[in-house]
């Protein structure tokens, strides 16, 4: 464990909690892409099946359980409890265009052709594009609530910090995972446009406009 990975995980946890609390307290999921949240639930489910097979550490297990729990709770709030506030018209990204290529790629390029490893690879590839429906929805509505922008900032920051974690681990441990690194770079690059706006627009004053 290193400072980049720990702050990355905490940034990820913050993003997940910010979104869950926002929907719960405002009793509304307006401006939130349910499709992205379903993709994240799939990402965690396929990546954390090793909860059933191997124990790495209490931290590892706790975080995985929290991530999976919050992801499904968020999907439940969007599609069940506050379904009336779900903006389906603007959440129109064709996720099959993400899931199918990612599924194919995970079968072709992986570290080991075993079910668990292919699912892990699928999860890594899917996570790198899972935010696209949300970014697409914001571009369609032309704005995002301030809280939503903080959610996206923390979410984007987490994988950027992981890039530094991988540099650290390569330098100090000689460890590197090319699949995770390449997908992590793609994932972080997708946020660049958003990061630029978040930093330059001084968002705290008005809603995010493209």
């Amino acid at each position: 464990m290193n400072v980049f990975r720990l702050t990355g995980d905490l940034s990820h946890l913050a993003a997940i909690i910010i979104l869950l609390l926002k929907i719960w307290k405002s009793r509304s999921c307006a401006g939130i892409s349910g499709k992205s949240q379903i993709l994240f639930a799939i990402v965690f489910t396929t990546r954390y099946l090793d909860l059933l097979t191997s124990f790495i550490s209490l931290y590892n297990t706790c975080m995985k359980v929290i991530y999976i729990g919050c992801a499904y709770a968020t999907v439940y709030l969007i599609y069940a409890k506050f379904r009336a506030t779900y903006d389906g018209n603007h959440d129109s990204f064709r996720v099959e265009f993400l899931v199918v290529p990612v599924g194919g790629l995970s079968v072709l390029i992986n570290h080991d052709f075993s079910p668990l490893e292919i699912l892990w690879t699928f999860s890594i590839y899917l996570e790198s594009v899972a935010i696209l429906p949300q970014l697409f929805m914001i571009s369609k509505t032309g704005e995002a609530e301030t809280i939503t922008t903080h959610y996206l900032f923390c979410l984007g920051l987490y994988r950027a910090l992981y890039l530094f974690n991988w540099i650290w681990r390569f330098y100090f441990e000689g460890f590197f995972d090319m699949i995770a690194i390449v997908a992590g770079v793609v994932q972080t690059v997708l946020y660049c446009d958003f990061f630029y706006l978040y930093v330059t627009k001084g968002w705290f004053s008005r809603p995010y406009r493209l």
């Binding site: 090793d50 191997s54 590892n60 975080m63 995985k64 991530y67 570290h111 490893e117």
Partner: peptide
């Protein structure tokens, strides 16, 4: 790339 007990990162 894989540790013997799978992946140790979240």
């Amino acid at each position: 790339a894989m540790k013997d007990d799978g992946h140790d990162e979240l």
